[in-house]
Design a protein around this nucleic acid. Structure first.
Lengths: 247, 247
DNA sequence: CGCTAGCTTGAAACCGGTCAACTTTTGTGG
DNA sequence: CCACAAAAGTTGACCGGTTTCAAGCTAGCG
């Protein structure tokens, strides 16, 4: 399982054979910390590219044993739980460069399900190994603490009692910025999730999502055609999203 | 600032002079890990009892520089932010034994305000020191990861779109269990926060909180008299709270 | 005593959910 | 490539829980 798996779908592969993962947060952390070759090599051995996962394929399920954190290298991952009535509660969408599975550390088991929304490739980091390594590399330990701490505040979009318009605007602005951070267009991208997924994430009915999209389009805020979306007036969307995103 | 401050209000002091803090999570972690005297002494030097804070006094404010995580030793702490419209959004209430400030690690600054709801005493742990120590004590590092990871899933109560009744029931059950874990009565305790605080936490109008209390009381679920509350039918409350607490 | 913050109660408005019907798209197998 | 079925998305009508607004109450404290 440690032998480097073939990469059948070289998403975002920059051609540099020796950079083990251009999109991974840990890679970035170590490079920033100015570690030399030996440390990078140590980090390298615990990295495992896995996938591709096909659309609808599960990456892990609630209750699965946790032993590795994963960074999304390509594609989109949705995490969710099913509530007492069996209804799906979407917890988050993870784009390339983002890390999933951190909430599993405390229990040693995943508290949620993760499923691929399109073709997904991951970088897996053995958690015991990275934790041991972190004891020797202060920069890595700090980065881990930072990653964990970041996620604590992430639920803001879901937490407040905001209007459907505010939620949707915040959702779109968030996607826009996250795509922009990875070098994609901030104003035009594909929604890799269904309307129902968006609704379950924003705690709205699917019908409401549909209606808000229509209203936004009528107001010339966006242009939507199925999964293709273009943000026409980012300024006004940001104003709408302001109270959610706290700026 | 490192000299041990006097303890003017020995809340929950069990009289054992050598146990530096009976309620602190870190203390517990080290004791469980089976460390001997030397390690405990190391941990001891970075612990600082601070307070008491009076009701309404701020422990930290949004934007303040972060350098220590704190465990509540006595009293109740409320954390909150003010949204774009200046309305208070309560993020959490922290009872004795619980840790505040973890979300500040990633930014190096507190992302929220913390205020004492009654007389509060804290244990402060210098974060740089404890991080350095964690590099040598694997058990401590693991405990830190666990604490951080735990907090990631905490927002569940606020995240879902639950009814006012479900939210309130979950809130009361949560308080009950947390008090019980610290040896207090699980069925009768003081609400140290105002109705408005509860409303801001549960994302309800203060009027709704009032009405739910009344309804619960009429239904013989609870008995409330100002800040004094008694849970009369924990079973039924748990049923109500089930979907929120995900059991 | 009287002020004030906290709390309660009632009436009305509104936002989003639910239900139902329909359209569009996607996927599958002949 | 078409036929068909299933899934996803849209739209309208109606309903209900919560909020909002307004008024009054209560306890605590100077």
């Amino acid at each position: 399982m440690k032998n480097p798996p073939k990469r059948p779908n070289p998403i975002a592969d920059d051609g540099d054979e020796f950079r083990f993962c251009s999109t991974c947060a840990f890679s970035a952390a170590c490079l920033e910390s100015g570690y030399g070759k030996p440390e990078l090599r140590e980090l390298h051995v615990l990295v495992e590219h896995i996938g591709p996962f096909k659309e609808g394929e599960h990456i892990f399920r609630e209750g699965d044993e946790f032993n590795a954190i994963a960074a999304v290298r390509g594609g989109t991952v949705k995490t969710y739980v099913n509530d007492a009535e069996g209804r799906e509660q979407v917890q988050g969408f993870f784009l390339p460069g983002e890390v999933i599975g951190l909430s599993a550390i405390s229990q040693g088991r995943y508290p949620c399900n993760a499923v691929a929304l399109d073709t997904v490739i991951l970088c897996n980091f053995s958690f015991p190994t990275i934790a041991a390594l972190a004891a020797r590399l202060p920069g890595l330990q700090a980065q881990l603490f930072r990653l964990l701490s970041q996620d604590i505040g992430k639920a803001a979009l879901l937490a407040g009692n905001y209007s459907a318009d505010e939620r949707m605007a915040a959702f779109l602005i968030s996607l826009s910025r996250r795509y922009a951070a990875r070098g994609f267009s901030p104003t035009r991208f594909q929604l890799t999730m269904t309307r129902t997924d968006i609704a379950n994430y924003l705690r709205l009915a699917a019908e409401s999502v549909s209606r808000v999209f229509r209203r936004f389009q009528d107001d010339k805020l966006i242009r939507v055609d199925r999964r293709d979306i273009e943000l026409l007036d980012v300024k006004r969307l940001e104003v709408l999203a302001r109270s959610v995103l706290r700026e």
